[in-house]
Amino acid sequence: MTTAQFGDNDGVNDNRELGLRSWWSQQWPAIVAPMLAAAYLPLAVAASLPDELLRLNHLVLPLAVSYAVCGFCWALGYRLGRSADKGALVGIIGVVAFSSVGWIVTQLATSRADRAVGGRVGVIALWGLAALALDLAVVRSSVDLARLVRFLAVTYVFLVTYVGGKTAWSLLLPARDQPPAVSLDIRAPATPAEPPRDVYLIVLDKYTSSAVLAAHYGFDNSAFESELDARGFLIPGASRPNYVHTFLALGSMLNLRYLDELPQRFGRSNRRWDIAYPLVENNRLAAFLQSRGYRFVFVPTAFGATRRNRHADLQVPRAADVRPEVHAVWAHLTAAPLFRSLGCRVLGCNVDPLPYLPSSAKVIDSVFHELGHLPKSRHPTFVLAHFLVPHEPYLYRADCTHRPPYWPMHDDGPGADHVRAAYLDQVRCVNRRIIQLVDAIRAQSRIPPIVLILGDHGHGRLGRDLPDLQQVSPPAMLERISAFAAYSLPGVPADSVPNDISPVNVLRFVLRYYFEADLPPLSEATYWSGAIHPYDFVRVR
């Protein structure tokens, strides 16, 4: 076909088309490579998630921000270098640097390199400078970069095909992976004398004991305690946690024993928290109750140890609805929180970045409501609910209306009064919600249920990362190891629950009293460990 056959006009179009085709055959890698590079990390994060935490719409924000960063860098590289290849390379360098800075900061945190460059800000600045230097080298380069860009384009085709395919597979054919079986080594009669009661274990993160709230905060919690007392609760005034970190406290109470083997098993200098998380998910308490015909209802949270429970018969809410996990992990790896806090400095909003993406107050509200209105079942019910309140971020005012999330970097210093007020407001709101929940639970129970409400540990006001014991003042230590507790144990005489009982022994008591389990009381003990070396236990009480 020749242009003469179709006249001049068509010839121009054809030439244009030919020009476009030849341009595309030359330049496609410079367009395709950065486009795929921008998509890679969000898709890689999505592909790494368990199917039940994945939602397609959660990818929108990470992809949009990635494309914005990459597009901006591409345009800058193109303008300065006057070549599409240079634009592509600057775009890829930009998006890779943006996508990895959070990961680099986390890896170097508390290391010697981190201290040498002046901490987080130094690491970010150096990473940014390295990316800029590389960009400059690309822009000023006089070598032909087409081959390198073609190589990157082909490499990213492989990468994105793999992670995109895996993500699509997860979304189209979700498969719930099976948790390991839990060995049941608790001796108890198969059918106890009493009819089974529903069991509610409600863990309130960082709820300090009323005695310490009065002594350290000047806060009178007696109205709340009186309301619980009127509903038949026992309130051991000197209740203490077994461990000062949530995942250890939960791992211990849910397995009805101390975690004495962990320092040896993992090493005292081990820094990883997540290796102990299976103790929370695969716990003996839930396994025992399920073996006795209980329906296990679990409340997933934004905190890793209680993010989901694959043994649960019902999760309220569904784990994927707690927060957008792709978004949460992606934000943790990238410079997005940094840009957000810089933007906040300009706009004057709260500049303390949240250490992780929490679930919203709306989600917490709905959990409080739904636990009081669970679907009916012919089975007795065991509810394990770990609420991330009154722990930070502060999400509630005293009347339970929502406030902008606030998670201070420090609990002391000039902002100390503000922090204390925010914590007490959240405690007041939690008190209100708990009374509503207890009333709803009682209303939906045929026989009076067992309700255990307890703080996993107290506050301590020691900042975001719990220090080692040597760096903690005695009052702060006391505050951390004094936790609120209130137990509704139908039929149990008040004097059979010691005033300083800890969670491990309360749960052993419940199984002993109601299920005739062979679980004699253990001696009471409380262990301290800092956030950096969580298995370096020191007995403090």
Binding site: F151, R272, A302, V329
Partner: peptide, 30 residues
């Protein structure tokens, strides 16, 4: 660890494998 860990090792392995494949393809060694 407050997140589901995407696994830096897994991402690095993916990148390394894809880079080898990409290199082989671009240099027409297969």
């Amino acid at each position: 660890m407050l997140y589901v860990d995407p696994g830096a090792g897994s991402i690095l392995l993916q990148v390394a494998s894809a880079a080898v494949l990409g290199g082989l393809l671009v240099t027409k060694r297969w």
